[in-house]
Design a protein around this nucleic acid. Structure first.
Lengths: 132, 132, 132, 132
DNA sequence: GTGGTCTAGACCACC
DNA sequence: GTGGTCTAGACCACA
């Protein structure tokens, strides 16, 4: 497992979202988008914990929950790998479902603020380019 | 202070988001969108608490934080009103700043999922209509 | 009683200090400094309340407390006047005692902030000129 | 977090000033004067509450407001630390701004009492020595 | 271990 | 009537 993968993680210590949640969400998306494929190894708990200077228990919790959901598999003595059956999460439809909540929330807030639809979409388009 | 205003609040107990946060967010948006103007009275802590059957302290916490941020003002012995200087939150630019975080987050997630820009904007457009 | 006197009052509705306290403190200082002398009439409760758009009860409370302390006297059907015996509050020593609390508080805060003595005194000197 | 820090707090129950305000003011000054630096840990809510025999919520309120103002930061599951960006409160100029209100108030009162400038400054100088 | 949230109820100050 | 402050104690989430 090389360091490259660790760099795929983006952890913000003070952002309201709990660290283990950030890990879970990002692994889920990396798998759904195909950046991580069935059988790929994940960086060890110790590596991630050391790299981000967080408690190993926190990473462990994230991995365990991902295992419970069927996204990861535990390989005795080796570590965690992406589970074999990930077919269901690859389709565009499935991926759109994953971002539906945050899109809906954004839409609600925009409407409550009375921001015109065009302005919202324009801003969104910008951010989509910017976060590439 | 009539009942009309209380109806502007939408509180969902146990939706993850703490009650006092829901109040804060809604008042902020009502002010930013112009539904609440400088000098407008807010429903009293006890009224809101009674109406939604929550503890007065919970509402008090929300109002106090809104005062600390400068959105509300206290009228001793009378109640809370919208603070006089709200010029900074009215412009479209300022309102766009208020939803920037959630839009950015949505953009990041979409890109991590590898969803094409057009699909995201299309979905967003739908939700904007839907939440009106 | 002319309007001049009303102008001697400075009421800040939103300053933490209760309105009736502001009235009391200012009358006390006006008497101690000799701006108000024994027998002088004070503006009626209605005038003050009307001028500052506050509840007459608030002004009444302040006058009553000043009467209880012996600073004012009630003249049946006429209003309030400065009490006859005010000799004890006129000396410089007595007046210095009146500002001791606020000076001490300022000194404590300055020391906790580690501000050099000279800077504090210089700032104070400025404000003394400015508030004349 | 050792006991040293708790000793930096001075809480006077029932002195007019609410307990949570006393905490806020003292932390603010400790940070501004450099006694507390960015990253320093604060004594836990439970420790302070236990030490002074006050309700944890009271201390929590103080810490929360200090976080809202940007003086403190939360370390999830660990505690509160002094926020990283405190550059704005360190300079002598900024510290002078912090005591400006109380100095101004003192100046106003002194002038209303007609106390000569020299007497005020002399008294102030004494108190500055006395409160060291 | 840490802080966050909420409740139920008390007492106070102000208007 | 209004909000402010505090208590005592419960339960939860996070590390």
């Amino acid at each position: 497992m090389d360091d490259q993968l660790i760099l795929l993680f983006q952890i913000k210590t003070s952002s309201g979202v709990p660290i283990y949640r950030q890990i879970i969400d990002q692994v889920t998306r990396l798998v759904a988008s195909g950046h991580l494929k069935a059988g790929d190894e994940l960086p060890s708990i110790r590596r991630v914990a050391g790299y981000f200077e967080v408690n190993p228990m926190t990473i462990s919790k994230a991995y365990s929950l991902l295992e419970a959901v069927g996204v990861l598999e535990r390989l005795r003595g080796k570590g965690m790998i992406v589970a074999s059956d990930q077919s269901s999460t690859r389709s565009l439809k499935k991926r759109l479902e994953l971002i539906e909540p945050v899109l809906r929330e954004a839409a609600i807030q925009a409407n409550q603020l009375g921001i015109p639809k065009e302005s919202v979409l324009q801003a969104m388009a910008e951010y989509l380019e910017g976060s590439k």
